[in-house]
């Protein structure tokens, strides 16, 4: 996994609550066998006026001029600002892959759906939860100031606004450590292989029915 330390970039505002994973990436793209290439279809149904699928040439599709990411002002944005319960719905990691592939490394919202939050962390992306008032203020600032950018600093857990205001944020220590160092979770877990085997040996005696083979 890629490490995340600091990030400075343009902010794009997506002013909707409960943005679900079907909206982030619709089902037809889930037929892909890969993890990459989903950036072009991020927010597909809002972003394009015509229907696309895995075989479409997205550069040739009709862009929806009213959708925020199609506004030249937000081209190249690296930080997405959103409302409560962002990423609700399915477990599809394609949602995180699509945001990442598009260029977003950080999403700021009042709250996130659990599975989406984990999926971000597994892909070197930082979801930052800030309180509603703070998010409201950021929306106002982004919309009124063209070129509005933020600097995110994970080691010191601070976001710095253009006027030098500092916004602290919370993150669990273990998650921070893994993100900062871009650690491979599986390799870390396998360092505990002996503990896992001990656990299994104990449970096989206590509850052998849990170890029956499905066939």
């Amino acid at each position: 996994m890629d490490a995340f330390t600091t990030l400075s970039g343009l902010v794009a505002p997506l002013d909707r609550a409960n943005v679900d994973t079907d909206a982030i990436i619709p089902k037809q793209y889930l037929k892909s066998l890969k993890r990459t290439g989903f950036g072009a279809v991020l927010f597909d149904e809002w972003r394009y006026l015509d229907q696309g699928d895995l075989t479409s040439d997205h550069a040739k599709r009709r862009a929806n001029p009213d959708f925020v990411l199609n506004d030249a002002r937000y081209a190249g944005a690296k930080i997405l600002l959103a409302r409560r319960n962002f990423g609700c719905g399915s477990s599809r990691e394609h949602a995180a892959w699509a945001l990442r592939d598009y260029g977003f490394r950080c999403v700021i919202a009042p709250s996130f759906a659990d599975i989406f939050f984990n999926n971000c962390m597994k892909n070197g992306m930082l979801p930052v939860a800030l309180d509603d008032a703070r998010v409201d203020a950021l929306f106002a600032a982004v919309e009124s100031q063209p070129g509005y950018a933020l600097s995110v600093d994970l080691p010191s857990q601070k976001i710095t606004a253009p006027d030098s205001e500092e916004i602290p944020f919370e993150i669990e220590a273990a998650q921070k450590h893994r993100l900062l160092n871009g650690l491979d979770d599986i390799a870390l877990t396998l360092e505990h292989a002996d503990l896992i085997r001990q656990y299994e040996d104990r449970r096989k005696k206590e509850a052998p029915w849990l170890f029956g083979r499905v066939a």
Binding site: E93, N118, D185, I186, L190, H192
Partner: peptide, 21 residues
């Protein structure tokens, strides 16, 4: 019982465990 993302699917396949709070 709960849903997981694809990276976690790989993690469970490889380790039979998940990191959880």
């Amino acid at each position: 019982a709960f849903g997981i993302g694809t990276s976690e699917v790989e993690h469970v396949l490889a380790t039979q465990c998940l990191l959880q709070r």
